[in-house]
Design a protein around this nucleic acid. Structure first.
Length: 285
DNA sequence: CTCCAGGGATGAT
DNA sequence: ATCATCCATGGA
């Protein structure tokens, strides 16, 4: 077990903020896969205690090198943003493996976070590789080649529905004639355009992949939650707000770390606007 | 039962 | 160029 300094970091909130969908609680910490490795990680105060992954990999994955103070200081100074910033202290953007992130968000279309977790688990258990970590079994995310070698029927059996065709088509693209790593050199607009050429990838999924896998901290994914926040907090009583106008506003208004701002607004909205089920049950008990 | 979910592709205006 | 509709699935 190694110890990694992790100031200004909240592991639980970061893993519960709808960026990654496969980590599971294990005792006081979590177990999951970082790329090809099974990892157990636990936070105690300002440090992470890690089994199974090398320090550099874990540090990079959890974005511990991001200058969080600087990033938060760059947020616009409005009330919605300040509330979210206070609520999300220690939330960081994770650096995910590119294909894993792309595939997961292709599967995220019209799905709630819990459903995405189920899909991720089924894909891993069926097509991934098992790894042992401290008496527990963790599955890696299947490679694009492995998914490309499967059938739409098999993918549908993982509860993908209409997303199966898209995932299969994109996996085949990557297995044969596209290297996601080589897109890293592209500027934001070109990278987004190339990602949007893939089946099942539109502006929203492309922005998620740019933010969570390509370190494009400016990318601002707009989903139903964020759209609600934008309409309520930034455009009360404005009609004629199409997706393009909203996107144009966010890019200018939230600036260089817009992706971080977006994640804070998203997580804050999701945790507060919807009453947590178990809290309601606790009140009724 | 009805409604909705980290949307995208397609065809109609 | 914008808008409406359909697409599967599962949980509340």
């Amino acid at each position: 077990m190694t110890k990694i300094p992790a100031p200004d970091f909240d592991l639980t909130m970061t893993l519960d903020s709808g960026q990654v969908f496969h980590w599971e609680r294990s005792g006081e910490g979590f177990i999951g896969a970082i790329g090809d490795r099974a990892v157990q990680v636990e936070q105690r105060g300002d440090a992470l205690f890690v089994d199974g992954g090398d320090d550099q990999l874990v540090l990079s994955y959890f974005g511990l090198d991001h200058p969080l103070g600087e990033i938060c200081a760059s947020f616009p100074n409005d009330s919605a943003m300040c509330e979210a910033k206070k609520f999300c202290r220690g939330l960081r953007i994770i650096r995910q493996p590119k294909w894993e992130c792309l595939a997961t968000f292709i599967c995220s279309s019209m799905k709630q976070v819990e459903h995405i977790r189920q899909i991720s688990r089924k894909l891993r258990e069926r097509f991934g590789d098992g790894r042992q970590i401290k008496d527990q079994l963790v599955y890696t995310f299947p490679t694009a080649e492995r998914i490309a070698a499967s059938s739409e029927k098999e993918l549908r059996e993982c509860a993908l529905g209409y997303r199966a065709k898209n995932l299969l088509a994109t996996a085949r693209q990557l297995a044969f004639d596209l290297d996601l790593e080589k897109l890293s050199i592209l500027a934001d607009a070109d990278l987004r355009a190339r990602l949007c050429e893939l089946a099942g990838v539109g502006a929203k999924v492309a922005n998620c992949v740019m933010l969570f896998a390509y370190e494009r901290l400016r990318a601002f994914p707009i989903d139903v939650w964020i759209e609600r926040v934008l309409r309520e907090k930034y455009f009360p009583r404005a009609r004629k707000l199409n997706a393009a106008r909203l996107q144009a506003f966010t890019e200018k208004y939230f600036g260089t770390h817009g992706g971080y701002a977006q994640q804070y607004l998203f997580h804050h909205a999701r945790m507060t606007k919807r009453p947590k089920r178990d809290k309601v049950l606790a009140l009724n008990a």
